Amino acid sequence: MMLRLVPMSLVAVVAVLSTAAAQTASPRGPGQGNPAGTPAGTREATAGMPAPRQFNQADRTFLELATKGANAEVEFAQLAERMSRDTAVKQFAERMTREHQEANKRIATFAHNAGLPPMQGLDPDHQALHDRLSKLQGAAFDRAYVDSQIADHQVMAQLLEYEIGSGQDKELKGLAAELLPTILDHLQTADGVLATLTPTVANRR
Score class of each variant (00 low, 15 high):
Ala12Gln: 11
Ala12Phe: 08
Ala12Trp: 11
Ala12His: 13
Ala12Ser: 05
Val13Ala: 14
Val14Ser: 15
Val16Lys: 05
Val16Arg: 08
Val16Pro: 00
Ser18Thr: 13
Ala20Glu: 04
Ala20Ser: 11
Ala21Asn: 10
Ala21Asp: 13
Gln23Val: 03
Thr24Tyr: 01
Ala25Gln: 15
Ala25Thr: 15
Ala25Met: 14
Ser26Tyr: 03
Pro27Leu: 12
Arg28Asn: 14
Gly29Leu: 13
Gly29Val: 12
Gly29Asp: 15
Gly31Ser: 08
Gln32Phe: 10
Gly33Asn: 06
Gly33Tyr: 09
Pro35Cys: 13
Ala36Ser: 08
Gly37Thr: 05
Gly37Pro: 04
Thr38Pro: 00
Pro39Phe: 03
Pro39Met: 05
Pro39Leu: 10
Ala40Cys: 00
Ala40Pro: 06
Thr42His: 05
Thr42Tyr: 10
Thr42Met: 15
Thr42Leu: 12
Thr42Asp: 06
Thr42Gln: 14
Glu44Asp: 10
Ala45Arg: 12
Ala45Lys: 10
Ala45Pro: 03
Ala47Lys: 03
Ala47Ile: 03
Gly48Ser: 08
Gly48Asp: 07
Gly48Arg: 12
Gly48Val: 12
Gly48Cys: 08
Met49Ala: 06
Met49Thr: 08
Met49Lys: 09
Pro50Asn: 09
Pro50Gly: 08
Pro50Tyr: 08
Ala51Lys: 09
Ala51Gly: 03
Ala51Leu: 10
Pro52Cys: 02
Pro52Met: 02
Arg53Leu: 14
Arg53Phe: 03
Gln54Trp: 05
Gln54Gly: 02
Phe55Leu: 07
Asn56Pro: 04
Ala58Gln: 05
Asp59Glu: 00
Arg60His: 08
Arg60Met: 13
Arg60Cys: 09
Thr61Val: 07
Leu63Arg: 06
Leu63Ile: 06
Glu64Lys: 06
Thr67His: 02
Thr67Gly: 12
Thr67Arg: 04
Thr67Ala: 09
